[in-house]
Design a protein around this nucleic acid. Structure first.
Length: 300
DNA sequence: GCATGTCAAGTTGTG
DNA sequence: CACAACTTGACATGC
């Protein structure tokens, strides 16, 4: 069976995630900062629970939790720890409720740290910040029972080989809970499936295959080959494979295929994925509407 | 209300 | 050289 995944937010459902900025927080006392952050964390944890309830009601089997669930958690000036927040116990209870619910309903959870997280960077400061941010997401992943923390390999810096060497070295600096969840995904300009599959094998971590990126940035592997190698890697680890799908906003003409469309064009969905036991994250601007539409289109 | 400018962070390619 | 793109706008402010 295929399992479809929703990414981060909703379009129509009244489920929203709150945010704040360091600059705004800095005008307040520390006490007031923590009070505001606490209120946002409480609201966001509740929103994740509502999100999972919607997923369960609509047979959507996976959810990607947005990175700033706890906004500015690792910020050098306004960063904080959960225990410092006035509602810490309430928040912890909410995270536990999410974990219980996702187990009961068999919903897969993942995180996708954003583009500032670069394990292959030659700059120590960048790597340090990356490690801290990924460890934060690892803490959250533990709390809610998320299985995957998926990242890209970062920049090339003139030598992909050396960049991947740094990535492999820095991987060893991560904690066990993070390493057991980390996955690498092919991107659309620098690292293709053929670049990353060997790295994943070496590190004994899974590979997330984004077929849209592969179409933007092809390599020696055919789509079917990349799919098979991705599956093999997940199966070696006894886990269910993960794929990403999206459609280009402006068609496939050169140069403009990268931005995501509102919905998935069913013709972009590879037919050889249909019989698989796997999770497909749907990256589309129309969010839950796009997931439901794709399910409908494929069942016809 | 609604439009607008701003917000931590990295890297790359385009115009 | 400025800016958009990337998994994802939200928020405060000023009219």
């Amino acid at each position: 069976m295929l399992r479809f995944g929703l990414c981060c937010i909703f379009k129509d459902q009244p489920i929203r995630f709150r945010q704040t900025t360091a600059k705004f927080l800095e005008q307040f006392s520390r006490r007031e900062q923590l009070a505001r952050l606490s209120a946002i964390c409480v609201a966001n944890v509740q929103s994740v629970y509502k999100a999972l309830a919607f997923l369960a009601d609509n047979q959507i089997g996976a959810f990607r939790i947005m990175t700033p669930l706890f906004p500015r958690y690792t910020h050098p000036k306004v960063g904080y720890r959960l225990e410092e927040l006035p509602d810490a116990e309430h928040i912890q209870a909410g995270l536990s409720a999410i974990r219980d619910f996702r187990h009961k309903k068999d919903i897969r959870l993942s995180f996708h740290p954003d583009q500032f997280n670069v394990l292959s960077s030659p700059r120590p400061e960048v790597v340090k910040n990356t490690l801290r941010e990924i460890e934060y997401q690892g803490m959250l992943a533990e709390s809610v029972g998320a299985e995957v923390i998926n990242i890209h390999a970062g920049g090339r810096y003139g030598s992909k080989k050396e960049a991947l060497g740094r990535l492999k070295k820095n991987f060893q600096l991560l904690s066990d809970p993070v390493r057991s969840r980390l996955t690498l995904e092919n991107d659309d300009i620098s690292f293709s499936p053929a670049d990353l599959l060997p790295v994943c094998k070496e590190l004994s971590i899974p590979f997330v295959y984004d077929i849209h990126h592969h179409r933007c940035f092809p390599d020696v592997l055919k789509e079917q080959e990349a799919t098979e190698q991705c599956i093999a890697l997940w199966h070696t680890l006894g886990r269910e494979p993960y794929f990403h799908i999206s459609s280009p906003k402006n068609g496939w003409q050169a140069g403009s295929s990268r931005p995501h469309a509102d919905y998935i064009n069913p013709e972009d969905f590879p037919p050889f994925w249909l019989p698989l036991n796997a999770t497909i994250d749907v990256e589309a601007k129309a969010k839950e509407l796009a997931v439901l539409q794709l399910k409908k289109d494929l069942e016809l």
